[in-house]
Amino acid sequence: MNGLIRAELLKARAGRTTWVLAAIAPLTCALWAVLPVFLLDLESAMPMEHRVENVYNMAQQAYVFTLVLGVLAMTGEYRHQTITWAFLVTPSRSRVVAAKLVASGLVGLAIAVVSALATLAAGAALLALRGHPMMTPQVPLVLLGAVASTTLYGLFGVALGALIRKQVVALVVALLWFMYGDYFLSSLLPDVGRWLPTGAARAVGGMHLESGALLPAWGGGLLFAAYVTTLVLAARLFTLRRDIT
C-alpha cells in the first residue's frame, strides 16, 4: 500500500497541473480575504469577533482547487487510459482508489496549509491597515478548520471521479454542484443547507453565517466524511468493477 501511495504522489508531483493549481490556490484565498475586510465598515448584526473570523475563514476558498485536483487525479486515469496499467499492477481496484484518496489527501493538505498561511498574512495585514482588530482567540481554530475542510474536498473529488469516470462530466458536476447548486440551496434554505456537503464543510471551517446555524465542527467533519464514503461505496458498486476496454 505504501508503494501505491508513493506512486500516486510521484504522479501528482510530475504533472504541471498540480503545481499550477497549488500556486493559484493561496493567491485566490488572499484575494477572497479582501472582501470581508471591507464589509467590516458596514453595519451588521453579527458580532465583530465573528466578522473578523470570517476574514480568515476565506482560507476555505482553496477548496475548489483540491476538489478539481482530486477529480483530475482519478478521472485522468480513465481519460488517458492509464487505468489499464494501474489495474494490471494492482488488480484490487479498491486499493487503487484507496491509494488515490490518501495521496490526494496529502496533496490537498499541503495546498490547504499554504492557502491558510496566505489568508492569514493577507487578512492580518488588511485588518491592521484598516484599523480593525487583527485577532480573536478563535482564529487558529478557524484556520485549522479551513485546512481540514480544504483537504476533505480533495477526497471528495477523488470519490466523485471514481463514480463518474468521464473527466469533463465529473468536473462540471463538481463545480456546478459546489459553486451553484449547493451554494444557493445553503443560502436559501439554511435548515437543509447545513446537511449538504457545503454546509458540512463550512461547519468544519467554523464559518459564521448571518442566518441559520451550522453543525458543530466535528459534526460537519463526520457528515462530510460520510458523503465521501457514500460516493466511494457507490463507485465500488456501480462503476469501479466495470470492464476496462
Binding site: G3, L4, R6, A7, L10, K11, A14, G15, R16, G76, H80, Q81, T82, T84, W85, A86, V89, T90, A99
Partner: peptide, 18 residues
C-alpha cells in the same frame, strides 16, 4: 495508454514504485 505529460522514465518509475 500513457499520460502525455509524463516522461517515459517517470511513467516506468510510477509503475515500479506501485
Amino acid at each position: 495508454a500513457f499520460h502525455p505529460a509524463l516522461t517515459a522514465r517517470t511513467h516506468l518509475r510510477v509503475l515500479a514504485t506501485a
